[in-house]
Design a protein around this nucleic acid. Structure first.
Lengths: 149, 149
DNA sequence: ACAGTTTAGATCAAAGATAGTCAAAGTCAA
DNA sequence: TTGACTTTGACTATCTTTGATCTAAACTGT
């Protein structure tokens, strides 16, 4: 088996044992698996992405760690739908419509709606020379990803 | 647990017991915790910063002390404070710190924090050729304005 | 009051402990 | 053969711990 797959399997086992959330020492795990530490990063970036439902947190220095959290997927379908509805670029009006939909469907609160609208408002992006709709799409995607946590 | 975290926890406990304001003897605390005195300074500088709402006062010499005060701000005050803390441009780490403060001080929920973070994450702004920090500042301001409504 | 001594916190830089990034080299299937 | 995926390791960034040295405040004897 591929080293990266073995590492991923190890992490998955640990996740299962620990009920969906765990902390590892990068160097320890690397040593246990017999690989270089940076390969742990590779495995995490390639397989434990937010898109696949994982949250990663880490800290360097003494007592450093990497925390991996598996979030429960269930009512995220609507969010997924919105996520893909955004596309590569989106204008302010369409963005507002999508956000309003989320609110209408009780996926976000009124306050959350206001925050999201603020972040993608023309005012927020006024300094952009160009590509406003592309950046707006990226921002929205990150916001929706944040909701799926 | 990490020594610095243990010290921070100790201070937090004392703060809670004493209702938001306390005085410690640096050397005594260091001895109690089993660390060098200067580590107390390190913990204070890294975790009890004014940015996080703490005021530090101290005195040297006989009867010296370090006083730590947790400052309570009112919501509007805090939002204003954050708004101005942003400045014309802001990097991702500083933005995260400000957002985290809002959450720590119960001005936003964990979900709102996640949304705000998402919107100003490097990932959300990765398409920008330049001026990332300027756009980030604008986005943050609009998000905070949304909270003041 | 003054000078010298003692007490106690501040500062800073070096060393230690971790994790992240990036690009080059390797592998493998289409 | 090419392109995607994997493996490595050098270099970087961040956080923590420690101790030497500096500075300020209080105390003491005259």
């Amino acid at each position: 088996m591929l080293m990266s797959d073995a590492i991923a399997e190890m992490i998955n086992n640990l996740l299962r044992e620990s009920n969906g959330s765990l902390e590892i020492k990068r160097n320890d795990l690397a040593e246990k698996m017999g690989c270089v530490p940076s390969q742990i990063n590779y495995v995490i970036t390639s397989r434990f992405t937010p898109e696949r439902g994982y949250i990663i947190e880490s800290r360097r220095g003494g007592g450093g760690y990497i925390r991996i959290i598996k979030k429960e997927m269930h009512k995220d379908e609507y969010l997924m739908h919105s996520f893909y509805a955004i596309g590569d670029a989106i204008d302010a009006a369409s963005a507002a419509a999508i956000i309003r939909n989320l609110a209408d469907n009780k996926l976000i609160t009124a306050r959350e709606q206001a925050i999201m609208l603020g972040a993608v408002s023309p005012k927020a992006l006024e300094k952009l020379a160009s590509g406003e709709n592309i950046v707006r799409a990226d921002i929205m995607r990150q916001q929706i990803l944040a909701l799926m946590k």
